[in-house]
């Protein structure tokens, strides 16, 4: 009974399955947070200073491109490093 619960909560003592998918899942955490911060703060900045909308949007896009690049690097690393 106890062993079963522990098994469910902790899985087994080693990671099985596709390590590449696990790696991509971990690699997507950071960019996910980053994209959220970029668009959240961008919307906040536009709400505070609507007259600067264009500049803020451009900088949002550039930051988004850089952050997204990190996520996509995480996506291709399993293909490169088998």
């Amino acid at each position: 009974m106890l062993a079963e619960a522990v098994n469910v909560l902790a899985g087994s003592d080693s990671v099985t399955g596709s390590l590449g998918s696990v790696a991509y899942g971990l690699a997507a955490i950071g960019p996910g947070i980053g994209v959220g911060i970029i668009f959240g703060q961008g919307v906040q900045a536009i709400a505070r200073q609507p007259e600067l909308t264009n500049v803020i949007r451009q900088n949002m896009l550039l930051g988004f491109a850089l952050t997204e690049a990190l996520a996509l690097i995480g996506f291709v690393v399993p293909f490169v490093h088998k």
Binding site: M1, L2, E4, A5, V8, L9
Partner: peptide
């Protein structure tokens, strides 16, 4: 299927 005291919480 497998109702136990510990498992019920899960």
């Amino acid at each position: 299927e497998k109702l136990t005291v510990l498992g019920a919480g899960v």
